[in-house]
Design a protein around this nucleic acid. Structure first.
Lengths: 119, 119
DNA sequence: CCGTATCCGACTTGATACTG
DNA sequence: CAGTATCAAGTCGGATACGG
């Protein structure tokens, strides 16, 4: 669990604000893909700055890929889950199962109930 | 992924500094148990304040239990993993498997290699 | 031995404004 | 549309000192 340990590092960027939510939005998209503005709209009150930061971090870590169409205006950017990103979603599903076993009393979310959510 | 979502909340306190390492130290102990001073010594440079904070948080979340012997002096405190805490170790093992699959190039820890570590 | 209290610097986020 | 720049506010951990 040295700072360079992958488990530790992964946990670090996954718990930055909005990071998990960004992954889930991509997970819900067709082909696990979403445009920048779609992410921003569905996440609600996130700022462009933070969304951009999170996407950059997730891209550097290989969880998210990016396609940019700069030939036409306005520019369109698409982000998508990589295979590694999808693998991580599976890990989070295990975390959810743990939560359903041991944290059954706190699992109420405002907009969706954990039992029914995409995980 | 509302702030009250258990997955989100769990990720929040697990990635606080030293939290995972505290769990692993307990995991390595006989009966998954360690004294306060043993934790402090094996973690090296952690301060009492932060160790105490992490233990309190993990206790509140039901991952760690505490036994205090205040009858004799000096006081002795023992901390141990609960069933929920052990369950979470399993989830982290899944995370490690993900890391071994997709992050094979970064898995060098200073004091231990992920391939051989307790996970 | 097992903590708590206080101060302080570093880092993170949000608000706002602006650009190709 | 897809970002970047700047600044203010809040949060966290480390150092230090102290107490039952």
């Amino acid at each position: 669990m040295h700072p360079d340990c992958t488990v530790y590092k992964t946990a670090q960027y996954l718990t930055k604000k909005w990071a998990l939510l960004v992954l889930f939005e991509l997970y819900k998209g067709d082909d696990y893909t979403r445009r920048f503005s779609e992410l921003k709209d569905s996440l609600g009150v996130i700022t462009s700055k933070v969304l951009s930061q999170r996407l950059r971090e997730l891209e550097e870590e290989g969880l998210v890929g990016r396609r940019v169409d700069a030939e036409h205006f306005p520019i369109k950017s698409e982000y998508f889950l990589t295979e590694a990103g999808l693998g991580l979603i599976d890990v989070i599903k295990h975390l959810k199962q743990w939560a359903l076993t041991y944290k059954i009393d706190n699992i109420d979310c405002q907009c969706q109930n954990c039992r029914d959510c995409i995980l």
